[in-house]
């Protein structure tokens, strides 16, 4: 049993992830490999008050990604992202 801590929605990822991706990832659709949750990145839960950004699935709270800025560069862990569909121009 757990209670939600303060978190923001996935729209706040637009700025930080624009340093990494050429497309707006918040517009992507994500399918969770852990619980099957399907929906927009904007639905993700973003915990911002720790030493880095921690992003979790709204369905099962599995870790989706971590992003830490260190003096040596951005550390991005996409290990729990699942399958994402990115919008592209025709």
């Amino acid at each position: 049993m757990s209670t939600p801590a303060t978190h923001l929605d996935g729209n706040v990822l637009a700025g930080p992830l624009s340093e990494v991706f050429a497309v707006d990832v918040t517009a992507a659709e994500r399918h969770c490999a852990h619980c099957g949750d399907h929906g927009a990145f904007a639905r993700l839960r973003v915990y911002t008050d720790g030493p880095g950004l921690v992003v979790r699935c709204p369905g099962c709270e599995v870790l989706v990604l971590r992003l830490v800025r260190t003096p040596r560069g951005l550390v991005l862990d996409l290990g729990g992202t699942g399958c994402i569909t990115l919008p592209v121009d025709d």
Partner: peptide
């Protein structure tokens, strides 16, 4: 006493 967390707070009995 700031609270820093990386997810929901577990309630452990």
């Amino acid at each position: 006493f700031p609270v820093l967390t990386v997810g929901p707070t577990p309630r452990v009995d």
